[in-house]
Design a protein around this nucleic acid. Structure first.
Lengths: 268, 268
DNA sequence: TACAAATATGCAAATATTGGCATCAGCAGC
DNA sequence: GCTGCTGATGCCAATATTTGCATATTTGTA
């Protein structure tokens, strides 16, 4: 066992132990019954009873041999593909609604979110588009008949999201400006504005916004009022926000003051 | 999750292992049973059972030898796939022989091509490599444990070969120099030197050669003595040529005069 | 077709879980 | 002070899960 805090916590009240137990599991991603039993100096049976209780309260996930953190399933800093497979119907509605904003012949820049990828798939009805992206899965997602050219932004490859991160101002050494940046984000709050989970990604996205005449943000309702680690830009930088539910009233007010056009994707 | 981290994860709870396993497969696009088995320090049987379970839940797609990500739609492009599937045994031998020239910790630049892609797959025995490429299929082909970082060259996307074309001298706005350029070409002749089918690709490849201390050219016997449309560079720019058969005597003589190291991949 | 690798299957060992039961500390009431 | 109650805990035996190994079978490739 390799718990950095090697000290053994004895004679801890049950309630306190439960709290620390949840924290431990969350901090380390997983804990075995044996680790916890020696850490708290209680029997494995007690630990098991604790874990069952906490699992029934939804504070962690019980598994054979111990417990794993709940984040892996629900929390917003889940990995890309887990995000990819959540709320797909809502994201598709958002993608379709956002697609209405695009005209034939536009130049677009797309970042690497799960929603943006669905957006790329929805573009098949358009023609003569020029697409710039840091998302390596977009080229194969785009229908061949709708694009004139596709450009990939170079940079470091991030395997978990299959995107590159790096400066955006140029493609093939030439400076670029595009009609619309279509951006998927990790969270939107009044205070932090647009946020995402990876710092380098935040820089890349800001670069995209800077080279675009118009910024369209795609965010399903679970993103509204939640913030991620890295701040991208304040709400004022958004031109249009496409989502699937009415935002909380305070956020709606802030968006209005920031002159953000709000589009709620219809249920259809 | 840190993908480039090749360290072994031991004593992971089954449920946690399943979560990480799905992440790994999705991030890398594919994982073999052996890779996963050594990564998690469990037997291949366990990995197989895990993969079967996860596949039954629709979280990944099971294949012979491992698993691939569910959404990893292999873009079946006829011409490229056709090239990809010709002379595969010879190309594999070439790739393996070329791999012997690479040492742990090197920085490499790879162009797009069927042979270079097989070469990337052969690198799994190496460690700590830094890879730069314009080939969008390389990142998912590379074994996770052999690379430290992967960089994608930005530029225009060419759908038929799934590569980008553009200037090479910089990645993320910083100038780069690499140890070895590993280049697959369309043809090699005395008069035209190295050639390829697409003009822009020729420029990209020349850029790669210019930033590399050493140039390794991979070309199966069908390329020797044949030329394609666009000239890349004269024979003198090659340091090492890896092929699978003895070249025609006049070409062999010219290679010798150009001080090209010639390596014939063994039949094994 | 033939061969090596990958897979399926059955099985046994190690480990974890479950449910019942005993113990013990704290506490209220007699 | 004593008694009985309650909740938390530890112990135990039966059961279930996970895992690795051995064997037979299938699959992909030369």
């Amino acid at each position: 066992m390799e718990i950095s805090d090697a000290s053994i916590r004895e004679n801890v009240l049950p309630a306190k132990r439960h709290l620390e137990l949840v924290e431990l599991v969350r901090a380390r991603g997983q804990m075995t019954v044996n680790e916890l039993s020696s850490y708290f100096a209680v029997s494995g049976d007690t630990v098991r009873r604790d874990l069952d209780l906490l699992a029934s309260q939804g504070l962690l996930r019980r598994t054979h041999g111990g417990a794993v953190a709940m984040d892996n399933l629900v929390h917003e800093d889940s990995t890309f593909m887990q995000r990819m497979s959540t709320r797909v119907p809502a994201k598709k509605r958002i993608a379709r609604a956002a697609c209405q904003l695009i005209r034939d012949g536009e130049t677009l820049i797309l970042n690497g979110g799960s929603t943006t990828r669905l957006f790329a798939a929805e573009l098949s009805g358009r023609r003569n588009l020029t697409i710039v992206t840091n998302n390596l899965t977009v080229p194969t997602t785009l229908a061949a008949e709708c694009v004139r050219d596709v450009y990939i932004l170079g940079g470091q490859y991030k395997g978990d999201a299959q995107v590159t991160v790096g400066p955006v101002g140029f493609v093939s050494a030439a400076s670029i400006t595009v009609d619309s940046a279509v951006i998927g984000v990790g969270g939107i709050t009044i205070k932090e504005g647009l946020t995402t989970t990876v710092l380098e990604e935040a820089c890349t996205i800001l670069g995209m916004i800077n080279v675009a005449r118009r910024t369209i943000v795609l965010a399903d309702a679970s993103k509204l009022g939640h913030s991620s680690f890295a701040q991208i830009a304040p709400l004022e930088r958004i031109d249009t926000l496409v989502t699937d539910e009415e935002p909380p009233s305070d956020l709606a007010q802030a968006l209005k003051e920031a002159r953000v056009e709000l589009i709620i994707a219809p249920d259809e």
